[in-house]
């Protein structure tokens, strides 16, 4: 997990085993609070499949982050993964997505601009 400015970057590189997915979710919540991050980017460029378990983790993580005052953007979803997720019945309605890391960071930067200035 990398922190760039106010943003935590999580890049998923390994084949996800269920227990690892759950640990990641817990770690991320703790890191948001510890670091005071206002945004989270989850990069799934390297992820070949997202099944209902991982899909649910993405949705839950987005919801948890929101409660901790951080916005989540999932970036880098492969076309085949998007097609499969929709057919599976998971459209991840509550999860903001962007095609690339750059676009994801842009979304989070815009959100920060709209926050009231700190006195």
């Amino acid at each position: 997990m990398l922190k760039i400015g106010d943003v935590l970057l999580v890049s998923i590189q390994v084949e996800l085993e269920d227990q690892v997915v759950l640990e990641l979710q817990d770690d991320l919540a703790a890191r948001i609070v510890d670091s005071g991050a206002s945004g989270v980017v989850i990069d799934i460029t390297a992820v070949e499949i997202v099944d209902s378990f991982v899909g649910r983790m993405l949705a839950t993580t987005a919801a948890i982050s929101r409660m901790l005052d951080a916005q989540t953007v999932v970036v880098g979803m492969r076309p085949a993964v998007a097609i499969t997720l929709v057919e599976l019945g998971l459209s991840l309605g509550g999860v903001r997505t962007a095609l690339t890391l750059e676009k994801g960071l842009e979304i989070l930067a815009r959100r920060d601009d709209s926050r009231p200035a700190q006195l």
Binding site: E48, D51, S52, F53, P79, A80, E87, L88
Partner: peptide
Amino acid sequence: SLVDQTKLVTAASELAR
């Protein structure tokens, strides 16, 4: 095809779980 591979592996993941 890549899409069909992804669909099959995802289905297998669900059923294995």
